[in-house]
């Protein structure tokens, strides 16, 4: 049987596919670290930003944190199922994770619609520019994770390429991690 090198080669002591995900996460740390670090510096340097940040919806942010933490749980449970070679359960749990991503995006859309209608657009001021850039970039990563997991779940349901369940999960946990820091920065520090 012919299988991709990312699945089979382990020259570095771990499957190349998993190593690639860690490299991806490392590069994402620099991207999100740059955005969050810049936000933090400007927030501390400009006390007037507190007035703008008072308009973000803490409860929507908290609910989305709950959703992402729960989707991370289902991702790690899917990994556990894959370790037991239970592809069907892994696939079900991955679909539950995708559902979590979907709920997150719906809540975000409702939230953004209200904010934009109230005049808090991306060009309103620098706080809102940061807000939409950081949360939007994170949202794109949520969408990417959902798409990847759809493919992984489809294979897992047939008992194929179960090692990919862990790789997709690692990425999803990182997306969750970014939100864990975005939430207090954008919604709580007022």
């Amino acid at each position: 049987m012919i299988r991709p090198i990312a699945t089979t080669r382990e020259m570095t002591g771990m499957p190349t596919g998993r190593l690639a995900v860690w490299w991806l996460i490392a590069s994402e740390i620099v991207i999100f670290g740059g955005v969050l670090g810049s936000y933090l510096m400007h927030r501390i340097g400009h006390k007037e930003w507190a007035a703008a940040s008072a308009h973000t919806n803490t409860w929507a942010g908290a609910f989305n944190t709950l959703v992402l933490l729960t989707s991370s749980l289902s991702a790690v449970l899917a990994h556990n199922a894959a370790l037991r070679k239970d592809g069907k359960r892994a696939a079900k749990l991955l679909w539950f994770t995708i559902l979590g991503g979907g709920i997150f995006l719906v809540v975000k859309s409702i939230e953004w619609t209200g904010e934009i209608k109230a005049g808090y657009t991306i060009t309103a001021n620098n706080f809102w520019s940061f807000y939409y850039t950081a949360a939007g970039l994170h949202g794109l990563h949520v969408i990417a994770g959902m798409i990847v997991m759809m493919f992984v779940a489809a294979d897992a349901a047939k008992g194929k390429e179960l090692q990919r369940v862990e790789n997709a999960g690692l990425y999803w946990h990182f997306v969750d991690l970014v939100w864990i820091f975005l939430f207090p920065l954008l919604y709580i520090a007022k």
């Binding site: 049987m1 012919i2 299988r3 991709p4 089979t8 382990e10 070679k85 090692q163």
Partner: peptide, 17 residues
């Protein structure tokens, strides 16, 4: 080549369990 021959029974976690 971007493919390699491997046994079909490759472990889901490659010993990472």
């Amino acid at each position: 080549s971007d493919t390699a021959h491997a046994p079909a029974s490759t472990d889901a976690a490659h010993g990472h369990d």
